[in-house]
Amino acid sequence: MFQGKILIVEDDEDIRMGVKILLEAEKYQVLEAQDGQEGLEILDNSFDLVILDIMMPRLNGLLTCQKIREKSNVPVLFLTAKSQEADKLAGLMAGGDDYLAKPFSYAELLGRVKALLRRYQVYQGKENPKEPVLELAGIKLNREFNEIEAHGQKVDVSDLEYKMLRLMMEHPQKIFSAQNIYESVWREPYFYTCANTVMVHIRKLRLEIEPDPQNPRYIKTVWGRGYRFENPEEL
């Protein structure tokens, strides 16, 4: 059984073949493209990860990633000979999720691949079909219409706050660091100042769903680690 479906977009045939052999040995299904244009023609919603070179003919990796982001949130791992911080930032700003400079070890590549797939499948991912309404301890979250109801009353939250609550309610008791939450909801690189952004939105969520926001029952702070959604009925 395949562990995931990966698209390699790389114009160097030797690298492309080496990566393919490595991933197939780990039970991943792998498809190849030799440039960005061909990769976009192959890519569909069945893929779990794109491994993307930057320097390619016809359509380079940065432009390819931008076009991918127009239709998909699939994780993108850049492989490139460029290793300067400015190049890394350009890749992340184009929509990439991680960056690996050539030459790289296959062990490091495999570690990055597994980490991106795990995060995508757990936080964003390829989930099994679920009921349209998720309900825990009097909190109802509608997965289809981005609506939240707390104790029989509809609450007004932003789209970001809705996504944060959904993330935590779908994985109750799991501790999410500020970085987990930011990268999963904002889909942007995390910097230490982003922790304050997450904290502000957590506070707003508590004001809407907690009977006593100063003593939260649902969205708990785990000091030094992050946040989790607790279902008091299960405690």
Rank of each mutant, 00 (worst) to 15 (best):
M1S: 08
G4H: 06
K5Q: 08
I6C: 10
V9L: 12
V9F: 14
D12E: 15
I15H: 03
I15W: 07
R16T: 03
G18T: 08
L23D: 14
E24Q: 13
A25S: 01
E26S: 04
Y28C: 03
V30M: 10
V30W: 08
G36F: 01
E38R: 07
E38G: 05
E41V: 07
I42N: 02
L43V: 12
L43Q: 06
D44T: 14
D48Y: 03
L52Y: 05
M56P: 01
M56N: 07
P57C: 04
G61H: 11
C65M: 11
Q66G: 11
K67C: 03
I68W: 00
R69W: 04
E70F: 11
E70Y: 06
K71D: 05
K71E: 04
K71F: 05
S72N: 11
S72V: 11
P75A: 15
A81T: 04
A90L: 03
L92V: 01
L92S: 01
M93T: 02
G96I: 10
D97N: 15
D98N: 15
Y99H: 10
Y99K: 12
A101C: 13
F104A: 02
A107T: 15
E108Q: 12
E108D: 09
E108W: 02
L110F: 13
G111M: 06
A115E: 08
L116P: 03
L117Q: 15
R119P: 03
V122H: 02
G125S: 12
K126D: 05
P129Y: 13
K130L: 14
L136K: 11
A137W: 03
A137L: 02
I139N: 09
K140S: 09
K140N: 06
L141S: 07
R143V: 04
R143F: 06
F145Q: 02
F145C: 00
F145Y: 03
E147N: 04
E147P: 07
Q153W: 12
V155L: 04
D156L: 10
D159A: 15
E161S: 13
K163M: 09
L165C: 02
R166N: 07
M168C: 01
E170S: 04
Q173V: 10
K174W: 10
S177E: 02
A178C: 11
Y182M: 06
E183W: 02
S184L: 15
S184G: 14
R187D: 05
P189T: 09
F191P: 06
Y192S: 13
Y192L: 10
T193Q: 06
C194L: 08
C194R: 15
C194Y: 13
T197I: 11
V198P: 13
M199L: 03
M199A: 10
H201W: 04
R203L: 09
R203G: 08
K204C: 01
L205G: 00
R206A: 00
I209D: 00
E210M: 01
D212G: 00
P213C: 13
Q214Y: 00
P216G: 10
I219A: 04
T221D: 13
T221I: 15
V222R: 14
G224P: 04
R225H: 11
R225F: 15
R228N: 00
E233C: 09
